[in-house]
Design a protein around this nucleic acid. Structure first.
Length: 851
RNA sequence: GCGGGCGUGGCGGAAUUGGUAGACGCAACGGACUUAAAAUUCGUAGGGCCGAAAGGCCCGUGCCGGUUCGACCCCGGCCGCCCGCACCA
């Protein structure tokens, strides 16, 4: 009997799928729709096993839902703008567009080879003018809505990638791609008003019940809603020009206002700037504050620095009470009001500051069991609840009531208002890079900032940008900038910034329903398909892409372009595939395939295969092209076929968990492929099937259908494969020809099809089925057959297993109890003991309590 | 500091609602097939102890305690690891 040969079988069935167009999604079909997609990849060059795992997962879901009778949309595209293309251009002098498209061609071919059931008719890349031109169109519509604005402000500057970054793209004080320490820089920047949607973005998280709790929490924390009081402290003496109203602070603890001992301004506060302009000592202090780094370690150890401005403000609740105004290096300009009042007794940071500069510490919240006469604050601020004292009209109130009372009082005095403050900042979305979507704006000396008319879109990137030097290749292009003003026809310059690539990925799911539409979004098609029923991607996008996409969906909805509130009804965050990293002594990263590893006891030494030179073994990290710690699924597929590779990446590990890559699993997957095929290929046994054995096989078949169906629905792909392994063993034990075996094989082929689709087609054909298994219905189990007729019930005595009995399914407690007590073995065990209680859990277990 | 998660054999992991812990796979060992090897196939296997064997006993899901007839699962307290946020007023 010939062995299963994936090299022959697999291409044949891919051709058959393409021919029959089985993966084509029809908008408006009468079947229920199911939109499943994985986060589209950046076309970096080749697929690694992390990609293979991710897209195999999505494909299991897509094929499963298709078999269950859904009209499935499973599209693919390319997140194709971004820095790696520019870097390739700089290093090798290639054109970023050509480089990107070459990569796309390679990766498309690899994905197709994996047999992923994608509707390729909807494919696009974000660097296609047909895509980014539509993006420019909606960008301008949001501009007209006032959601896009330009402002000079402090921005995050990545000195290596030489571009501005959004807050979400600064991780631990470093650029998310370059890992360079981010600098604060004052620049004219473009922003999207994501903060207008802060409350809705927060509220709608509650409706996303098919999202991981973790992601919702991360977004909730990122949005960072807090309720508090915005309050003004009026100046007691002559006020600095422009600040006649006083100093406005934000606090979440208005109940502690009577414990105030200072007001502190941010070094970036306008009043600080005014003072610095007039007083070189203030200017020197501000300079000192800016020196500190932004990394975690530096912030953690940074000393609290203060500068007494000499100014005094009046306490809002007691005009006679003078409070000094300081400048504090720890006060952030872009949160709250950029100024705080300090209550050292009940805030640790304020306490540290007060101790250092010898400011008063007055407790105003009395802990429940403390004595008002003796309670004092030492080195630790008291931050918990209690009763308010030393606080005039608030005396005796609990913290919550006192907050409300303080807000009411401030409002009645006209000095403040209760407000909600968010941590979320507006989305800075311009990048000083050449390989991105041009911002469709021109700068006219006469008219100022003028949007390009929609009819003139797309504003396309020019040919011949020079990426050989650092900086923005678009800005230094010899002619591209030069244009005429669409308003007055006079000379004008194009905006040279491009959009953050996260803009590109913030709406692509709404383009797949009709990727050729004249409008950015074909509303009818989008209404049919959206929201995405199941989105699959990495946790690293929890507050990046996933927040931006939610925001853009809402903004486009308000513009009338979409009708859904949320883009992704279901989200699954798959684990990363990791691998050790290897570095040559000169620092060059090496691929695992280039390295030999030798183990001596517990130490492992690595050497370069070619030269034998020593190699440093580095951290285990997510597979990425930059660290070169990638293993290609194609290597596995070359040896064992695509189906074994797919089974391998989904076996053994739950999909949400990170896995450290080893090639060990592929052998097991390959054996499964072989064992399955052997059963289909075997000559039927001439032995007649006996009814008892037929029933046994039928029960196993219906059980495995239930188990695999449940496992796929619960994202336990590894368990589903384990059940299939076991089931093949059962089928093997039942070689007798007959209806039961045929039923078993038919189920087996269809159950394994989402994982090993080529093998499944071959098996299906061998069974004599005429159609494609890719279009065959999912097997349905008979619940009565999926349950055993007879149960083995373990019998415990005092919680320890002491035997077992056999009872019919559903046997009553009384029946079972009688059987147990009649059992001679159990009786022997109970000798000399008196039975206190017998607990029978129907169809499960028996426990006898005896002493 | 705040928020979240995880901890089970040599390894990856299973146990879906509190009911036989270790399914399935990898690696290992033994048998069959083979001149031999590979491939394939059948089998063994948490640890310890008693026994010639059949079989039996004890321990066991990071640690300590609790609830329960019964706990990997629930509760309290520790230890360790991982992730997110963080001078957020």
């Amino acid at each position: 009997m010939p062995r299963y040969n994936p090299k022959e079988v697999e291409p044949k069935w891919r051709a058959a799928w393409a021919e029959a167009q089985v993966f084509r999604a029809e908008t408006g079909s009468a079947k229920p729709k199911y939109y499943v997609m994985e986060m589209f990849p950046y076309p970096s060059g080749r697929l690694h096993v992390g990609h293979a795992r991710n897209y195999s997962m999505g494909d299991v879901v897509a094929r499963f839902k298709r078999a269950q009778g859904f009209n499935v949309l499973h599209p693919m595209g390319w997140d194709a703008f971004g820095l790696p293309a520019e870097n390739a251009a700089a290093e090798r002098g290639v054109d970023p567009s050509a480089w990107t498209h070459d990569n796309i061609d390679v990766m498309r071919q690899e994905l197709q080879r994996l047999g992923v059931s994608i509707d390729w008719s909807r494919e696009f890349a974000t660097c296609d003018p047909g895509y980014y031109g539509k993006q420019q169109a909606w960008f301008l519509r949001l501009w007209r809505r006032g959601l896009v604005y330009r402002k000079e402000g402090l921005v995050n500057w990545d000195p290596v990638d030489m571009t501005v970054l959004a807050n979400e793209q600064v991780i631990d004080g470093r650029g998310w791609r370059s890992d360079a320490i981010v600098e604060r820089k004052k620049l004219n920047q473009w922003f999207l008003r994501i903060t207008d949607y802060a409350d809705e973005l927060l509220e709608c998280l509650k409706t996303l019940d098919r999202w991981p709790e973790k992601v919702r929490l991360m977004q909730e924390n990122w949005i960072g809603k807090s309720q508090g009081l915005r309050l003004t402290f009026p100046f007691t003496g002559p006020a600095p020009a422009g600040f006649e109203h006083g100093v406005t602070v934000y606090t979440t603890r208005p109940d502690t206002l009577f414990g105030a001992s200072f007001v502190a301004l941010s070094p970036d506060h306008p009043l600080t700037e005014a003072l610095a302009a007039a007083d070189p000592r203030v200017a020197a202090f501000v300079e000192e504050c800016r020196k500190g780094g932004t990394s975690e370690a530096e912030i953690e150890t940074a000393e609290k620095l203060g500068f007494d401005t000499g100014l005094k403000v009046a306490h809002p609740f007691d005009p006679a009470w003078q409070v000094p105004v300081w400048i504090g290096n720890f006060v952030l300009m872009d949160y709250g009001a950029g100024a705080i009042f300090g209550c050292p007794a009940h805030d640790q940071r304020d306490l540290d500051f007060a101790r250092k500069y010898d400011l008063p510490v007055t407790p105003v919240v009395l802990p429940p069991d403390a004595d008002a006469a003796s309670f004092a604050v030492g080195d630790e601020a008291y931050v918990d609840g209690g009763r308010i004292y030393n606080s005039g009209f608030m005396d005796g109130m609990e913290v919550g009531a006192a907050k409300a009372a303080a807000i009411a009082k401030a409002e009645s005095l006209g000095l403040g208002e209760g407000t909600t403050v968010y941590r979320l900042r507006d989305w800075g979305l311009a990048r000083q890079r050449g390989w991105g979507c041009p911002i469709p704006i021109v700068h006219c000396e006469a008219c100022g900032i003028v949007p390009v008319p929609e009819a003139d879109l797309p504003v396309t990137l020019p040919q011949g940008m020079d990426f050989g030097r650092p900086g923005n290749a678009l800005a230094r292009h010899p002619t591209w900038k030069t244009t005429t003003c669409p308003g007055c026809g006079g000379p004008a310059e194009r905006e040279t910034d491009t959009l953050d690539t996260f803009v590109d990925s913030s709406w692509y799911f709404a383009r797949y329903p009709n990727p050729d539409a004249a409008e950015p979004i074909d509303k009818a098609a989008a209404n049919y398909w959206l929201p995405v029923d199941q989105y699959i991607g990495g946790i690293e996008h929890a507050v990046l892409h996933l927040l931006y996409a939610r925001f853009v969906t809402k903004a486009l909805r308000d513009e009338g372009m979409l009708e859904v509130d949320e883009p992704f009804a279901g989200l699954f965050t798959q684990g990363m595939v990791t691998h050790e990293t290897y570095r040559r002594q000169n620092g060059e990263w090496l691929e695992p395939a280039q390295v030999d590893i030798a183990s001596e006891g517990t130490t492992r030494r690595a050497t370069l295969k070619e030269t034998g030179e020593p190699v440093t073994i580095g951290d285990i990290e997510k597979m990425s092209k930059s660290k070169r710690n990638v293993v290609a699924p194609a290597d596995m597929a070359d040896t064992y076929g695509v189906d074994a590779a797919r089974l391998c990446v989904l076996s053994d590990s739950p999909p949400e968990r990170d896995v450290q890559w080893t090639s060990a699993g592929v052998e097991g997957a390959w054996r499964l492929v072989g064992r399955v095929w052997t059963e289909f290929d075997a000559e039927p046994s001439s032995k007649a099937a006996d009814p008892a054995r037929e029933t046994e096989l039928r029960r196993a078949t219906h059980k495995v259908i239930k188990a695999v169906t449940d496992a796929i629905e619960g994202w336990r792909f590894n368990s589903a494969i384990a059940r299939l392994h076991a089931f093949v063993g059962v089928v093997r034990q039942h070689p007798e020809a007959g209806e039961a075996r045929r039923e078993a094989l038919s189920a087996l082929a269809r159950l394994i099809a989402p994982y090993a689709p080529h093998l499944a087609e071959e098996c299906w054909q061998r069974l004599g089925e005429s159609g494609l298994i890719a279009a065959a219905p999912w097997p349905i189990y008979d619940p009565t057959l999926a349950e055993d007729e007879e149960r083995v019930l373990p019998v415990q005595i005092n919680g320890k297993r002491r035997g077992e009995i056999r009872a019919g399914a559903g046997a009553s407690e009384a029946e079972v109890e009688k059987m147990v007590l009649d059992d001679p073995e159990i009786a022997r065990r109970l000798e000399g003991l008196s039975i206190r209680r017998v607990i029978v859990v129907k169809d499960r277990i028996v426990n006898i309590v005896a002493a």
